[in-house]
Computed example of a mutant assay.
Amino acid sequence: MNEIELYNFNFSSRKEYRDNLILEFLKEKAGTGKKELSSKYKYYVESLKDGKRIYLSRPTNLNKGMDFTVHLEKTEFRVKGAYKDRPKHQEIIEDLVQKRIENSFEYEKVKKILNKLYNCEFVNEEEYSNIYFEMGIEIEGILKIVKWLFLEQDVTYWNYSGRAMLYQSLKGNGLV
């Protein structure tokens, strides 16, 4: 397993994010076969205040090419199944719905940040450091995961709607 640190990966547009991430992936060395002969990569992209890290894993079993999965260390998004540290879009939506139900006033701040992430605007830590919910995954982790899920959608579905697919799901659930 090759481990690479890509912290401070911030750009101002979808295209810049996508292009620069793909350029990083193009540096990967080719594998020479299956299983232990394949080349595997873990890209650490975010650190949380509690020490957990968000990482991208390549290659994936989902699609071919430049696809990747997003993981949050030491976190279980589900009780059953494999890759419990890899959230599905529905699990993110359910977590955010619970947060909105818990405290709709506080959730309004989350909406603004989600919209900034969708629009590739820089989010300063102070914007979420005082947002607290008892339910679900810590808000810092959820927001940073969403940032990378948007990018994953851009890489995988660039020629279609990219990040708009996840955003429309959030919007359809009243979360943005």
Rank of each mutant, 00 (worst) to 15 (best):
G31T: 00
K34F: 03
E73G: 11
L37H: 08
E127G: 10
Y17C: 00
H71A: 08
E140C: 13
L21S: 07
E94A: 05
V176I: 07
E152R: 12
N124A: 08
F11D: 10
E138A: 05
E73I: 00
Y132D: 03
A82K: 15
K112C: 15
E125I: 13
I101K: 15
K112G: 12
I4S: 02
V97A: 03
L114R: 04
V70K: 13
N103I: 04
S161L: 13
E36L: 02
Y107D: 07
G174S: 08
E102T: 12
S47H: 11
C120V: 15
I101A: 05
I22C: 06
D50P: 14
N103E: 14
E5N: 14
L72G: 04
E134A: 04
F77A: 09
R58I: 03
L143C: 11
F150R: 00
R53I: 07
R58N: 06
V155M: 01
F9I: 02
E127D: 13
K74N: 08
Y55V: 13
A82Y: 04
Y7E: 02
E121C: 03
V155W: 00
G141F: 10
Y41W: 05
R100H: 15
N119E: 15
I139K: 12
G174Y: 08
E91G: 10
N173R: 11
Y83S: 06
I113V: 11
S104A: 12
P59Q: 09
N63L: 05
V155F: 02
K144W: 11
I54G: 05
W148T: 05
L117R: 05
D19S: 11
K34E: 01
L62I: 05
N2Y: 02
Y167R: 10
G51V: 10
R53C: 00
Y118Q: 06
E76G: 08
G31A: 04
K15E: 07
R100I: 13
V97G: 08
I101L: 15
L23S: 14
E108R: 15
Y41L: 03
K74H: 03
R86P: 03
I137C: 08
L6W: 02
M165F: 15
E94I: 02
T69V: 12
Q98M: 15
E125Y: 11
G31N: 04
V176L: 05
K88P: 05
K52S: 11
E28S: 12
N10V: 08
L56P: 11
F133W: 02
K99G: 10
I92P: 06
